[in-house]
């Protein structure tokens, strides 16, 4: 691993972790469990299209593990890991069909996969199939929040590439 790559991964992990911790301080607006912007996903998405699939995976894994440790809740790790893994897998599958002007779509796809995985984990942990009724709310939320994070990542990637940074 080159020093440049290691530094890039470290810097992006720090950014993702900071965003994750900051967002956790923002009170939730809606009384539907699990809805949040998922701003840290901007970093994962940008790294995916800017660096590589592997680097984005490393950044995501580091953020999920460190984020759970810093927030001090083992439950957060389960939800965070399930959501992160599923969102990442969905982008891996769909990224080859998407251009760099369609990162917004990758944002939506990963947000939907993320939320669906978290609902499934919640159903299993709570042993409550009724929670699945929240899924459509989370899909709608994911389309909105995913488009936001996706566009943010898309603009970030474009800017950084225009500046000659990769």
């Amino acid at each position: 691993m080159s020093i440049k790559r290691m530094a890039a991964i470290a810097a992006l992990t720090a950014i993702a972790l900071t965003i994750f911790m900051l967002e956790a301080q923002i009170p939730v607006v809606l009384a539907v469990p699990g809805i949040k912007l998922g701003l840290a996903n901007i970093v994962t998405l940008a790294a995916f299209f800017l660096l590589s699939r592997r680097d984005a995976g490393i950044i995501l894994a580091l953020r999920v593990v460190l984020g759970s440790i810093f927030s001090g809740s083992p439950m957060i790790f389960l939800y965070s890991a399930a959501g992160g893994l599923s969102g990442f897998a969905s982008v891996c599958i769909t990224a080859s069909f998407l251009t760099e002007k369609q990162i917004w779509a990758a944002g939506i796809i990963s947000a939907i996969a993320h939320n669906a995985a978290q609902i499934i984990v919640a159903v299993l942990i709570m042993d409550s199939p009724a929670l699945i009724w929240y899924l459509p709310w989370l899909v709608i939320a994911a389309v909105i929040t995913g488009a936001f994070t996706g566009f943010s990542a898309q603009f970030a990637v474009k800017r950084l590439k225009d500046m000659g940074i990769r």
């Binding site: 069909f97 251009t99 939907i112 009724w133 899924l135 709310w137 899909v139 389309v143």
Partner: peptide
């Protein structure tokens, strides 16, 4: 690799939104 057009993506996401809205109406 085949690319997906923006139009196709928008149709897919719109369909998901409509399906979710219907599901919510049924649940309610």
């Amino acid at each position: 690799m085949r690319r997906i057009s923006n139009k196709a993506l928008l149709i897919i996401f719109a369909a998901l939104l409509i399906a979710s809205a219907v599901w919510i109406l049924i649940a309610g």
